[in-house]
Design a protein around this nucleic acid. Sequence first.
DNA 1: AAGAGTATCAAACGCATGTTTGAATGTCAA
DNA 2: TTGACATTCAAACATGCGTTTGATACTCTT
Lengths: 218, 218
Amino acid sequence: MAIEIQLGLKPLSEDTCKSLLYTAGEVFAEYGFRAATVREICRRANVNVASINYHFGGKEELYAQVLEHAFRTAAEKYPFDTAGIGPPEKRLEEFITNFMRGCLGCGQAAWHGKLMAREMIDPTGVLTRIVERAIRPRKKILTGIVTEILGEGFSDEEIERCVFSIIGQCVFYSHAKPVIIVINPSIKYDDSWITRTAGHITDFSLAAIRLMARRKRR
Amino acid sequence: MAIEIQLGLKPLSEDTCKSLLYTAGEVFAEYGFRAATVREICRRANVNVASINYHFGGKEELYAQVLEHAFRTAAEKYPFDTAGIGPPEKRLEEFITNFMRGCLGCGQAAWHGKLMAREMIDPTGVLTRIVERAIRPRKKILTGIVTEILGEGFSDEEIERCVFSIIGQCVFYSHAKPVIIVINPSIKYDDSWITRTAGHITDFSLAAIRLMARRKRR
DNA sequence: AAGAGTATCAAACGCATGTTTGAATGTCAA
DNA sequence: TTGACATTCAAACATGCGTTTGATACTCTT
C-alpha cells in the first residue's frame, strides 16, 4: 500500500496500533478469538506479523483491548440506560431493538454484540470481565423493566425466567444464524427486518408478561 | 491397560470402533468438532492415535459417523413425533421438555442436542445434513402445534416467528450456559430444574400465542 | 508349520499456529 | 554528525495438530 507517499516526516504510520485494533475487532467478531489468526489480522491491516506482539504483547492482550474498546464505543452508540423515561412497554421495545441491532447489525457498532455472543458460547479468560462490565448491567435494566410491567408478588426466579425468555429470543437469531440461513434463506438481516423482528419479540413477550401479571392480581 | 489379559482368543478388542465412537461422541459434544483433538479422544478411549485413521479414515469421517449414530439413538429416546395425540397445549409442553432434555441433559442421550447446538453456532460441512435430518423435521412438528393453537389467518412468517421465539428460549440455556453460570451460579441444571424451566417456557409461549389468536379472531 | 490378513503401536511427517529474533530503517536530541 | 531509541520486517522458532509410516503381534486358513 502507500509506502512511498510519506514525503518526509514520521515513520509512515504511528497508527499501526489503531489499525490493528480496528482490524482485530473485525476479525475477532467474524471468527471468534480462537479461530481468528494473527496472520489474518495482520494481513488485513497491512502490517507485519510481529507488530501484534510488539505493540500489544500477544494475541490475548490484543483481544482484551479490542473488547475494552468495543465496550466504550458500544456504550456511546447504543445507550441501554434510558431508565425511567416513558412507559415500561416502550422501554422494552427500545431495549430489544437496540439489543438486536447490537447483535446483528453491520459495521463496527455490531462488533460488540458479536464479540459478546462469541464469548457466551465459547468463553475465553475475559468472560467474567464481560459479564460484570456489559451483561450484568443490561440484565439489571431489563429486569427493572420486566418487574415494572409484572407488578408486585413475583419471586426473583420468576422475573429472571422472563428476562431469560426475552434475551433468548433475541440472541437466537444471532447464535443460530447459520442454521436459520439454511432453514429459511429468504430472511434478510437488514435494518427493516431487525425492527420488525424486535417488534414481534416485544409483542410476544409483553403478552406473556401481562398475562402473568393479570393472573397474579386475581 | 489390559494388554496381557487376553488369555488366548481375539486380538484383545475388536470393539475399538465402538469405544472410539462412544468416546468421540463425548468429546465432540464437550468441545465441538474443531476444538476436540483426536489425541484427546484416543487418550480417553485408551487406543492408539492411529486408530481413528485406520478405522474411520480421519477425524471428519469419525465426526460424521458420531452424528449419524447420535441421530438414531436420539430418535429412539426422545420421540418428537407424538403428533396429533392429545391437545396441542399438552404436546407443546412435551415438545419443549424433550427438547430441553436433549440439549441440557446428561449422558449419551444429550450428546445429540449438544452436537446440534455446536453445529448451529460453528457449522462444519455436515450442517446441511443435520438441518434436513434433525432440525427441519422437528421444526415442522413444532410449527404444526403452534398453527393448531393459533388457528386460521396467520402468515407463514408470523408462525415461524413464534416457532423461533419458542426455540430461542430453549436453546438459550444451552448456548449461553457459561454466561448463565457466572450470572447466577445458584442454577442447577438437574432434571427437576429442566422440567420447571420447560414449564415456564410453555406458559410464557402459550400466553403469547393465545393472545395473538384471540386478537385475530375479533 | 507357513503364509496371508488384520489390528495395534511408537515414531515421524507435514502443516499451521503464536511467538521470537536480529538486522534494517527512520527519528530526534545532543 | 553521532548515538540512542522506536518501529518495521523477513525469517526462524517452538508447539500442537491431523495424518502417515513401517514394524510388530496376533488370528486364521491351508
